[in-house]
Design a protein around this nucleic acid. Structure first.
Lengths: 209, 209
DNA sequence: CGTCGGAGTAATCGAATGATTACAAGAATG
DNA sequence: CATTCTTGTAATCATTCGATTACTCCGACG
């Protein structure tokens, strides 16, 4: 008889649980999410989730850390990509270089937050700034992104400002569902249009996926 | 003997409860907030809160509606203010007019979200786009703001885009506590600086209030 | 004066949830 | 083969929370 749940290493199980937790925390938020929901999404029992992570709070922190780590990794990969694709000749204008990197990073971000769980886990983290233990984790993650844009992407201050602001607007439009409402609501469509300009089709396509 | 709680009309009591609920929902989020916390913040008993609003969900919806209404009202007041202060002569450049309105609206927004409860109640609403009953309320509120910027403030599409994006970035920086961390953290201060430029002092002053 | 409606509470209930405990079963180890 | 460590579960507990019920108290009104 095949066992009800396959026996795998604790490390692999932790990763499965973190992936499931990203979805559940994203859908429901930190406090509405239950360890039981996470457990069933991961295909195991609730007490095992608690035993592997200690507390629900600890599980959320590790989920948030993992998500922030994936964000950073995706950005770094996008930067490497942009540099590969770009002309390696030294006479490429620094400005054009910055634009190319910005475009790649934007693409990478859209790809990531296309997963609603990832998007909302990040946002829930940012909104828990008052929490004495989750707050610092979220702030540190945001600041890591900032440092990456400044030091690794070489963005100018105003470029950082615009990039982050656009990102936060994308978050809100996707999280609230205005992106999806764009088909069917004339004003929502116009809002998406003036926010994303020519990229609106691409964004909508991703959003509905 | 003075009664433990003063007897006042149900309408006044509802308003008191909604004000208290804004704080509690903001601090804790929708599902971590309890009707008992709201009741004690309003100085009454928990069952009375439930009786006046029916369910916790209904209480949140009315709280969100009230907050969105106050946001709209504050924006409209700021617009009226900008038009009063501006030169009434017809030869004032439309561009300068737009800038003045933008500045006033920005100020009004900062004044509003200076109250952490107001800020976070709005954000929690926007993040519940998937909720079948709360989602539509939040989206409608956002779209009302959009229409106001377009029809009443007369903003150009790109101006709307920038205004909203900056607003969402402000939200995130304030909610996550990066604004407050700016004193003491060099990178956080630099991030605030390149986000708000010359207005950074004003924002920080408000944020710490 | 009596009674009737509205303001408000105390007591309590049922369901949900995070956590603990005790136990089972498979794999490695000697 | 016996032992021991690891993976995993069933049962259960204590708490919390939203909601309900049954009541009290006050003021207005005829």
């Amino acid at each position: 008889m095949t066992p009800r749940t396959e026996r795998i290493s604790a490390d692999e199980r932790r990763e499965q649980i973190l992936a499931a937790a990203t979805t559940v925390f994203g859908e429901l938020g930190y406090s509405a999410a239950t360890t039981d929901r996470v457990a069933r999404a991961a295909g195991i029992s609730q007490p095992y989730v608690v035993r592997l992570f200690g507390t629900k709070e600890q599980l959320f922190i590790e989920t948030l850390r993992r998500t922030l780590g994936r964000l950073l990794a995706a950005f770094r990969a996008a930067l490497a990509d942009a540099d590969d694709a770009g002309d390696v000749a030294a006479d490429v204008a620094a400005d054009a270089d910055g634009k190319a990197r910005e475009a790649r990073l934007g693409e990478a971000y859209l790809e990531l937050v296309e997963d609603r769980g990832t998007l909302l886990t990040l946002l829930h983290g940012f909104m828990m700034g008052s929490d004495p233990v989750i707050g610092p984790v979220a702030r540190d993650g945001f600041l890591q992104v900032f440092r990456m844009l400044r030091d690794e992407a070489g963005f100018e201050p105003e470029q950082i400002h615009r990039f982050l602001a656009d990102g936060m607007l994308i978050n809100t439009l996707l999280a609230s569902g205005i992106g999806l409402a764009a088909k069917g609501d004339r004003d929502a469509a116009e809002l998406m249009d003036c926010t994303f300009g020519s990229h609106v089709a691409e964004v909508l396509e991703r959003a509905s996926a």
